[in-house]
Nucleic acid binder design. Structure first.
Lengths: 227, 227
DNA sequence: CGTAGTGTTGAAGTTGCTCAATCTTTGTGG
DNA sequence: CCACAAAGATTGAGCAACTTCAACACTACG
């Protein structure tokens, strides 16, 4: 009688994403192809341009997905939190880099084996489809911010987004530097910094520390973001 | 013995996307839930905010997917060409509008029936997963353009993208106005227009007509786009 | 105590937007 | 077939916003 492997039973991401599509008895088949890996903040897990050898589930930590162009400019195109799926099945080559913003733990699956598993276990493919569609909708929401909002609105929208993801009531810890915020928002470090201090001056937020944001007036922040 | 319905057999999108995941004998089950619909250029097929009642496959024409914010600013977040899949299964409410840029024909599926079909027919879910992942990668590529490139590079990148999609050798027909280009690029009409004439002046493209672009120097265009 | 990394602030310079006028194309009715 | 209206596209001038460049402050860590 198949039972749940200990590591999965103890995993905080057990009920999330891909893993959540497997029943306790079934999870063995996913566990069988998975190995654990951890990465310190700053480490590059995936290099754009390399062959795509694995996918993964984020167990803990935060990662950024980055694209760069011919002139070396960088744009963060996604953030990965615990439970999120990393990588793209069916794609032989990576077009984006993945970098740890904070120390992270991953559950890694070799891509060929994962693709076999997706064939053999239809609920897994459906769960990935659901997530992919949700991620796409999120990316498109972000496109509106990148294309149409000014610096103030971008920063406000970013803070709201982070607040939602960490379901913070009034204080939230940013998982990244001003530089990374700029990469995500299509702004320079300086502009991000100026907007943060401006929001502070206007009593919309407070900054007890560089990366600690207290939301003083969430509705005004939402109004500024023009969400 | 099941055979291919006439309408599907004659359809130019038969081998594309969702339909392509069904064998000639199987297509009946998709055909059974589908009805045809056509829309003239300019017609709104989906209103953001409405309940999501259907998905569809584009048979002919071009559609735009648009998001708007509280201040009414609009951003095109995707374009749909023949064979592309319209709508988001599993999402109860639309967050984006879909508008025909050119007269279009669609093959429409009621969402609940489609979702049942995805359960019953795993290859269909896998095909949608593949497409969703590819669309996501495309959206992310576009995010780099929106966030990091200046007006000249945006317009150059857009023209290259359109050239690819219509696999044009040297002359391509834009399926949209300058205004829609601006919506897609996060620029004003005026800026798009100025960049187009500048590219013309620099002998990178020629404009026999407003929406007809002749690519005079594709490699220089690529260099300008900084792809 | 010095150095490196990160963040803030200021001044000057560009880029793209706004507003406004003009030109072109398209479509409609006489 | 032409005239006219409406929509789309182009061009120009002035302005606001963001970037760039530069200096300086704060923190952490050896």
């Amino acid at each position: 009688m198949p039972c749940e492997p200990d590591r999965c039973a103890a995993c905080s991401a057990r009920s999330e994403g891909l893993c959540g599509s497997f029943a306790d008895g079934d999870i063995t088949s996913l566990h069988a192809i998975a190995r654990r890996r951890s990465a310190p903040a700053g480490q590059v897990l995936v290099w754009a341009g390399e062959p795509a050898t694995f996918c993964a589930t984020v167990v803990s930590g935060v990662l950024k997905i980055v694209r760069h162009d011919a002139q070396g400019r960088e744009q963060i195109v996604g953030l990965l939190f615990p439970g999120d799926f990393v990588g793209e099945p069916f794609a032989d080559r990576r077009t984006e880099s993945v970098v740890a913003l904070k120390d992270a733990d991953l559950c890694v699956y070799p891509r060929p084996l994962l693709e076999q598993l997706l064939e053999a276990h239809p609920p897994a493919a459906r769960v990935l489809l659901r997530r992919a569609l949700a991620t796409l909708t999120n990316a498109r929401r972000w496109m509106l911010t990148l294309g149409r909002r000014d610096a103030r609105q971008k920063v406000a929208a970013f803070l709201l987004d982070m607040a939602e993801r960490s379901d913070a009531v009034d204080t939230l810890e940013l998982p990244m530097s001003r530089g990374a915020m700029g990469e995500a928002l299509g702004l320079t470090i300086e502009t991000v910094s100026r907007q943060m201090t401006a929001l502070c001056r206007d009593q919309v937020i407070a900054l007890p520390a560089c990366r600690t944001v207290r939301l003083l007036d969430r509705s005004r922040l939402a109004a500024l973001a023009a969400v």
